[in-house]
Design a binder for these strands. Structure first.
Length: 480
RNA sequence: GCUCCUGUGGUGUAGUCCGGCUAAGCAUACUGCCCUCUCAAGGCAGUGAUCCCGGGUUCAAAUCCCGGCGGGAGCACCA
């Protein structure tokens, strides 16, 4: 039945962020689902900036939203940056359109001016709540014929039913609502009103939004009915939750896409992870490119319960993408997390550094800590760290001396050859000292610590190859 | 308080519509083993869910019905 409607009607989705802050991760996920649904159905997408709240909306946030969406690989067919046939795409520039409909409602007596004071309203609200009633406007100004004040929309008391593509049939009693304010004045319409007008004007076919809007839907439907608009299809996505299961937008921590961007998450990984929050393909596959998501996404497979945003899983997926990434590209992305003097290193060397470190990375920013050993002139570490198991200090020294000697005469300076040389040295050393022959730790551990200054690092051969002969021998001497 | 949505291991989820094939699959996290000079990565294994609870229907229920309880969201001259 859904199919039939779609055949006759063009699929048009909208991305409606509000520029009162940076692009929120929950918002980004909602937009992603809109995007996937649109792309899959060959539909069009509209980026609509919901900036009717002049106090809180800022231009810089509009830019942040556009930048981060593009970074994520989400594009749109119409929007404030590229325009389109249903523009303008910032609500703050659409006042005339809203005004027209506002006047229509007013003249048809479907809306009216109200000049109750906020103190008065607040008192009534308190009273209603204390009596166990849902707080709602009592309709005092309904028939007063005021000519100024806020504009209220007359909500008729009835059962409002609609079909949600994810939740099925949903029913609300609009009698519990009370007349809602749809505009502060004729020039300043409010959210519920503009959203309904714009969705109609922009010919939006499907409204896919967060579950927090589920109980707002009857207001929108009533408004549509009064205005004579068609009703779009609705789908309400489960909310993104904090670890304590509260709504994620109410968290103070990292909730902006730009936070994750800066921390070094890859856009592909973030997209993959976000898609899995509330959706699954019904198979055991869980690594998806955007292209695959577009093919395999379906609203029917969207979960109904809220999904906790689990950073551990994000880290895992991100690590996976990092490991899969070709060295040149990964290196380029890592550049900004490397110290300034990385410019003294050749592209080839930087690639090697990244290559030997990438299995340890969860995020791009990890590269800083993981690779500082390659960029520092003098390593600072406790001499004790050089000791493998219960080795004697004298033996550590001897092991390092041996490494120094063998490496000094190495002809081919690459990891593979160095490994061969050092394995032989290790065997020789263990035999002389009476250590277990196969345990290479007696030489390799002191060597690796001498080269890295860390208890965990890439192997000594890789490090040596990257450092080069001169620097390698220098570090060994410093450790002695 | 009222309304609506929702409820499978710590987390994301499969299975729920069309009851039995799985006393619950996968992934993550955690633990251990293997690999190994270390840490990762990789391979293997394990801990962890009486499927929110209580009734009912049935030969049989995570799956159907009823009643509770828990969680969340919304009830703005914010969006």
């Amino acid at each position: 039945m859904l199919k039939k409607k779609q055949e006759t009607k063009k699929i048009r989705l909208r991305f409606p962020p509000s520029p009162t802050g940076p692009l929120h991760i929950g918002n980004a996920r909602t937009i992603l689902f809109n995007y996937l649904f649109a792309k899959q159905n060959n539909g069009e997408t509209v980026l609509r900036i919901e900036d009717t709240d002049k106090e809180r909306s800022k231009l810089e946030w509009v830019q942040n939203i556009i930048d981060e969406l593009k970074w994520l690989g989400i594009d749109w067919s119409e929007g404030p940056d590229i325009d389109g046939k249903f523009g303008p795409y910032k609500q703050s520039q659409r006042t005339d359109i809203y005004k027209k409909y506002l006047e229509k409602l007013l003249s048809e007596k479907k809306a009216y001016y109200c000049n109750c004071t906020s103190e008065e309203l607040e008192a009534k609200r308190q009273d209603q709540q204390s009596r166990g009633l849902a707080p709602k406007y009592d309709g005092k100004c309904r028939d007063k014929n005021n000519i100024s004040g806020v504009i209220r929309f007359k909500i008729e008391s009835k059962k409002v039913k609609f079909n949600d593509l994810i939740r099925g049939n949903v029913e609300f009693d609009s009698g519990l609502l009370g007349d809602i304010v749809i505009a502060k004045n004729i020039e300043t319409p409010l959210y519920h009103f503009v959203v309904v007008v714009d969705d109609h004007e922009m010919q939006i076919s499907h409204v896919i939004r967060g579950e927090d809007h589920l109980s707002n839907t009857p207001k929108h439907i009533l408004l549509q009915e009064s205005l004579g608009f068609n009703q779009p299809e609705y789908a309400h996505l489960p909310l993104l939750l904090n670890a304590d299961k509260s709504k994620m937008s109410k968290r103070a921590g990292d909730v902006a896409v730009s936070d994750y961007h800066k921390a070094g998450y890859l856009s592909e990984a973030l997209i993959n992870f976000m898609a899995l929050l509330g959706w699954n393909p019904g198979t055991e596959k869980e690594i998806f490119s955007m292209k695959e998501l577009i093919n395999e996404f379906s609203l029917e497979k969207v979960q109904k319960a809220g999904a906790v945003f689990n950073t551990q899983k994000l880290d895992h997926i991100n690590g996976l993408y990092i490991r899969e990434m070709p060295a040149p590209i990964l290196t380029k992305l890592c550049l900004e997390y490397l110290p300034e003097d990385h410019k003294n290193f050749s592209q080839k060397t930087l690639e090697k550094i990244v290559e030997v470190s990438k299995t340890r990375m969860k995020k791009l920013s990890d590269i800083t800590e993981l690779t500082n050993l390659f960029f520092e002139d003098n390593l600072i570490y406790e001499k004790d760290l050089l000791k493998w198991k219960e080795m004697k200090d004298a033996d550590i020294k001897e092991a390092l001396l041996l490494c120094d000697k063998e490496l000094s005469s190495a002809k081919k300076w690459d990891a593979k050859n160095l490994e061969k040389i050092l394995f032989e040295a290790s065997e020789k050393f263990n035999r002389e000292k009476g250590y277990p022959v196969e345990n290479k730790g007696y030489t390799l551990w002191p060597l690796r610590v001498a080269l890295s200054g860390k208890k965990a690092s890439p192997g000594p051969f890789e490090i040596a190859e990257i450092l080069g002969k001169e620097k390698t021998l220098e570090r060994i001497k410093q450790a002695l």
